[in-house]
Amino acid sequence: MTHLSDDLLNEYLDEALARESRTAAESHLAACPDCSARLAELRALFADLGSLPDLPLEVDFAPLILARLEQNAPLPRPVRWLTVVQAIGAVLAAVLAWPLAETMLPAWNLPPLQNISSALANSLLQTVSDFRFPKLVFDLPSLNLDLPTTTLTVTILGVALLWLVANGLLLIPRSRRTS
């Protein structure tokens, strides 16, 4: 008599056998004391695992979890103020940078705004067919600066400092800002 393999007994108890295989296994088990004994041992192991009680919990997680979720809730007031400061810093940086940009970039030969608007007003198709991008004159930035070197240096440093402060604050993880 060929005995049932361990895998087959495992699958039998896991109810993973197809109907035909299950029926064949049951027929064999009914006639084979050895395989029945092995099945009983395996069944006892299942019962041991099934009867393992849960360990009691000594702490209530709910308040701890809620506290940690609150950390990611809406930002507290000081942090909101910080955001305003950052915004002001960014605007100030842009204002300081404007003379620099004006010096380094040549003037753009843009057509008057009213010409463009009247052209657009004619008709959509006409505009699409006739529209030409205005010729842009763009030279590479020259280093013939009118500003005195010291003023330029101070401006660059100021802009760089404001940029670093504003973005440095923004880059701090929210969890650290709120803790």
């Binding site: 393999s5 004994a37 041992e41």
Partner: peptide, 23 residues
Amino acid sequence: DLFRARKLLKSALGTPKSPDFGD
């Protein structure tokens, strides 16, 4: 893994060894 785990667990629990008919 599952079948091997059961075999090891049975052995760790010291269940009387029954004949092994392989897989």
